[in-house]
Design a protein around this nucleic acid. Structure first.
Lengths: 204, 204
DNA sequence: TAGATTGTTAATCGATTAACAATC
DNA sequence: TAGATTGTTAATCGATTAACAATC
């Protein structure tokens, strides 16, 4: 593992390389160029991204799919399960809850929070919806490190603070708002309206 | 409007500036530094982003909220409505369909497509689900320029090709797969698993 | 006028691309 | 050995930050 900082975009590409590798025959060998073509980047970019973490290929030959898959899985920390807390069980939250992809990729949702009294106590997918007030205790007790926020924009900041209090270190935020946070927290925003507005600009 | 290329990230920030401006009193004047603080960037960055498109401030004073709001709205092409086609009416697609934010921000979903015979013909939110086979005709007839893809990964490429055939020029893709596309198409990927896997790396 | 803040240029930083010696 | 492809260094490109003259 490198001491220096690896750019965020490089990590994102590792995740995409891994997705491509999963579709390939285990015993196959492929070159950086072939892998690059599969995902629409350059061979140099592939080698550069991998070089941050070590030497995984054979000069003159290429990379063994099985080995590369295993290495990237390890680099990304995907050789384990990360329990997830979901805050905000509205339409979008419910969609994520029943989406099998989360569990399949090792990020099972294990606790649900909402601040609507009408929802608290209800059971969804076998999980009881709990009051947002209890976030710090529950999250800390369950040793959850990742949160997904699907609350309305107004609630996102408070929920973030509570998740942090409970020991969460990474958050995926779907609420369309800027969240103030300490640098120790890794926050990724998934911003629907910003994406659409960017499209609008380019179509104009 | 500038002839040269404006970086994608700058456009994204304009969208975020606009969101902050919408919350402020119309007649207020604020400095680039104040705006920057609201969204967590630097004053220089704000001025640089705006400078791509013109001069909107008063030296020594700052920016009038009302005017800046209007200008950014115009720059992003948000002074109109963009009809949207939704392909894939599963859990995620349904969540987006009932999400009021899309209509409110000027991107109303107007046509639904799915390739599941059990769904075709059903009505959701007043819209009849149509066969994916009819995408080119329907999209072209309705003059739709933006598509949202919430199909399984396997269907995304075909649906993209059909949307392009119908005249769509911008796509927001939620399917976890690489989509091959001509450079005339503006494609934005919203990739849940890549986001989570990036979190995993940083928490490890 | 003095103080504040813009618009813009120059300096810095960081990521991507090109190129090639080393290696199988 | 000849051909292919890696790992890595140097060159290029592009975006961010710093700094300041112009302006209200």
């Amino acid at each position: 593992m490198p001491q220096f900082k690896v750019p965020d975009v490089a990590i994102q590409r590792l995740s995409i390389y891994l997705r491509a590798l999963r579709k390939l025959e285990e015993n196959r060998i492929l070159s950086s160029l072939k892998l690059a073509e599969l995902i629409g980047t350059s061979d140099g970019q592939v080698r550069k991204d991998l070089a941050y973490f070590g030497e995984f290929g054979i000069p003159g030959q290429g990379y063994q799919v099985k080995k590369l898959r295993r290495e990237i899985t390890r680099i990304l920390g995907l050789d384990r399960t990360w329990k997830v807390a979901l805050a905000g069980v509205g339409k979008l939250g419910s969609a994520l809850l029943v989406y099998p992809g989360l569990r399949e990729s090792g990020f099972p949702i294990r606790v649900l929070f909402d601040n609507d009294p009408a929802k608290i106590g209800k059971v969804r997918e076998g999980l009881r919806i709990q009051s947002s007030e209890t976030i710090p205790q529950v999250v800390s007790q369950e040793e959850i490190k990742i949160g997904i926020i699907t609350t309305p924009a107004e609630a996102a900041q408070k929920v973030t603070n509570q998740l942090i209090k409970g020991g969460v270190r990474g958050i995926l935020n779907f609420a369309p708002t800027i969240i103030v946070h300490p640098s120790e927290l890794k926050l990724k925003n998934v911003d629907l309206s910003t994406n659409l507005e960017t499209l609008s600009y380019f179509l104009k």
